[in-house]
C-alpha cells in the first residue's frame, strides 16, 4: 500500500515538472501577529512559512504550522496552541488566492491586492490583502499587513482572559521568493 502511495507521489512530482517554470517558492517566509491591549502586548513570529506563487496564473498559496509561532512567554504559546487555535486539531493555517492585475515583469515596486480564502482554526474566510511586490532580478519580495477579527474564526477566549487579548489582531508578512528549482 505504502509503495503505491509512493509511486503516486513520484508520478505527481513528474507530471507537474513542466508547469513549474513560472513558480516561485519561499520555505522561510515570516508571518507575525500582534495583539495590543492595555493589559499586555502579545507578539508571535513564525519564520518557517511556506508559500508558492505561480506567475503564469498569478496564483499564490501559503501554508504555515500554527505550533511554529514563537512567543515571548511559553504560557502564551501554550494557551494559543491548546485553547485558542487548537493546533492538534487544526495544525495548519492556509491561504489560497490570486494577485489581482499583477505584472511579473515590472521592475518597480508594485502595490497590489491579493484576494483569496484564508483558513484558520478550520474556518475559511474570504479576505483581501494589500501587498507590495518588489522584483529584484528574478526574486520577489512580498510585504504587507492586514487585520483579522478573532471572533471570525470561532476562537473562544475565556472571560477572565478577554481583557488580555485584542478583538482585532494585526498580522504582518514578509516573503522572499526564489525560483522553484526543478
Amino acid at each position: 500500500m505504502n509503495k503505491i502511495i509512493g509511486i503516486i507521489f513520484l508520478l505527481m512530482n513528474f507530471t507537474d515538472f513542466d508547469v513549474k517554470s513560472d513558480q516561485f517558492i519561499t520555505r522561510q517566509g515570516q508571518v507575525s501577529f500582534f495583539s495590543y491591549t492595555s493589559v499586555e502586548n502579545i507578539e508571535a513570529k513564525n519564520n518557517q512559512v511556506l508559500s508558492i506563487i505561480d506567475f503564469s496564473k498569478n496564483e499564490i498559496a501559503v501554508s504555515m504550522l500554527m505550533n511554529a509561532f514563537v512567543f515571548k512567554k511559553s504560557l502564551m504559546h501554550e494557551h494559543f496552541n491548546e485553547s485558542y487555535i487548537e493546533s492538534d486539531l487544526y495544525p495548519k493555517a492556509t491561504f489560497e488566492g490570486s494577485i489581482l492585475d499583477f505584472d511579473p515583469l515590472a521592475t518597480e515596486t508594485q502595490t497590489k491586492i491579493i484576494k483569496g480564502e484564508l483558513t484558520i482554526h478550520g474556518i475559511t474566510k474570504e479576505i483581501e490583502i494589500k501587498t507590495t511586490i518588489e522584483n529584484n532580478n528574478g526574486t520577489y519580495l512580498l510585504n504587507g499587513d492586514f487585520e483579522l477579527i478573532v471572533k471570525d474564526f470561532d476562537i473562544k477566549i475565556p472571560p477572565i482572559l478577554a481583557p488580555n487579548i485584542a478583538k482585532i489582531i494585526s498580522v504582518k508578512f514578509r516573503f522572499e521568493y526564489q525560483p522553484y528549482e526543478k
Partner: peptide
C-alpha cells in the same frame, strides 16, 4: 519537531 509543510520543521 513542529511538523511538516514541504519540509520538516525543527525549532
Amino acid at each position: 519537531c513542529k511538523g511538516f509543510l514541504k519540509d520538516a520543521i525543527l525549532l
